[in-house]
Amino acid sequence: MAAPLVAAEGLSLERGGRELFRDLSIAVRQGQLWQIEGENGAGKTSLLRILSGLSRFGYAGKVTRTSAVLYIGHQPAVKSLLSPRENLAWHVSGDASYPRNEIDDALARVGLNGYEGVPTYTLSAGQQRRVNLARLFISQVPLWLLDEPFTAIDRRGVVNLQSRLSSHIEGGGAVVVTSHQPLEVACDICRVDLTGSPRF
């Protein structure tokens, strides 16, 4: 079996004197979709930030990554002074420079056709999140870490996004997603449940 794209062994994390999880192990391989569940404050975002490499201290355990990461966090990472097209073309994650027709295509697939050139501050909060989510339709990165990707997205957008997750998994990608909504995807879901973690 191929090496996991990201693997964590024996992860323990404590925040403010509370143990969020202990001795957690996870190995995300190609073609797998992982859903991290747990109530607010259970440590979902912290786990995702550890897996992505943004958090490098303050936890115990070992994380190995063999792939680049596409991370979508709570913040939209969208510049309101730039247009949606410029936001994607000049995106700071910089995994590639995309031709303009691919960018417009990705924006059309998140329902933003007609808005490519307008300043992003004129768009609604949901639309601004869609600008960020358009990266899922253009990026070639195999490993996606998505923190609550469905926040502020309407019902049709959620369906559209879930089918994109399915097709990414089919194409040999891997996804780790935190979400309170039940996922309706074509593939199996591996679950990490942080709800029952030991507490002090």
Partner: peptide
């Protein structure tokens, strides 16, 4: 706005 996180994750 979170762009800095993206910059740090960039290859």
């Amino acid at each position: 706005d979170g762009s800095l996180e993206q910059l740090l994750l960039s290859p």
